[in-house]
Computed example of a mutant assay.
Amino acid sequence: MTNISRDSEVVELNQPPLYNYGQKVRAKKTVRNDGTFMGKEIGEVLCKKGDEGYVVSIGTFLQQFYIYGVEFVATGYRVGMKRKELDPVETITTTASGASS
């Protein structure tokens, strides 16, 4: 049987997402189109290392990872990124009532 290579042995979905909706984040690396971004050529840069954006969606991939849809301010592109590809710019805390501060 073929061994499946995983980025990590940790299944992120066993814990809540690290980033919250509306949280400002920064790209840790340059991301290029792998063919899944419509209207852009394969290999075209979607975001550069250091670009900042906001988490606008949270999905999953391979029943293992969270994928954060990040809308980058400079380009307006929404790019799906893994936790390891992002750094927080600001921390959003949630109060007991569920309101963000």
Results as ranks from 00 to 15, higher is better:
24 K>W: 07
28 K>F: 01
25 V>T: 09
6 R>N: 08
49 K>E: 15
53 G>V: 10
66 Y>H: 05
101 S>D: 14
55 V>Y: 03
28 K>C: 13
20 N>C: 00
58 I>E: 03
101 S>G: 10
39 G>W: 04
99 A>M: 11
20 N>W: 05
4 I>C: 02
92 I>T: 08
41 E>L: 12
53 G>M: 05
19 Y>M: 11
49 K>Q: 14
52 E>S: 08
39 G>S: 09
89 V>P: 04
58 I>N: 07
59 G>V: 00
55 V>W: 06
101 S>N: 14
43 G>E: 08
7 D>L: 14
87 D>A: 04
28 K>N: 14
4 I>Y: 11
100 S>E: 13
94 T>G: 08
9 E>L: 12
48 K>P: 04
37 F>E: 08
20 N>T: 08
14 N>R: 15
18 L>E: 14
65 F>C: 00
43 G>H: 14
5 S>C: 04
57 S>C: 00
87 D>P: 03
93 T>D: 08
86 L>G: 01
72 F>R: 00
51 D>H: 05
101 S>P: 06
42 I>R: 15
33 N>I: 04
1 M>R: 09
72 F>K: 01
67 I>Q: 13
96 A>Q: 12
46 L>A: 07
34 D>Q: 06
14 N>G: 04
85 E>R: 02
45 V>W: 07
66 Y>C: 08
83 R>W: 02
72 F>Q: 00
85 E>T: 00
21 Y>I: 11
60 T>V: 09
38 M>K: 15
56 V>R: 09
94 T>H: 02
68 Y>E: 01
58 I>G: 03
60 T>G: 12
52 E>R: 02
61 F>L: 13
33 N>S: 15
99 A>I: 11
80 G>L: 10
59 G>M: 07
69 G>S: 15
38 M>F: 12
45 V>R: 05
84 K>W: 14
93 T>N: 10
86 L>W: 01
77 Y>P: 03
15 Q>H: 14
7 D>M: 08
11 V>A: 10
1 M>V: 10
101 S>A: 12
96 A>K: 14
93 T>R: 13
2 T>C: 07
8 S>Y: 06
4 I>W: 07
90 E>R: 00
5 S>Q: 14
18 L>P: 00
24 K>S: 13
63 Q>F: 13
40 K>C: 08
96 A>F: 11
1 M>N: 07
80 G>I: 08
83 R>T: 10
88 P>S: 12
90 E>C: 04
64 Q>L: 00
92 I>N: 01
91 T>F: 06
26 R>W: 00
4 I>M: 10
22 G>R: 03
8 S>M: 01
50 G>R: 09
7 D>H: 05
29 K>R: 15
2 T>H: 12
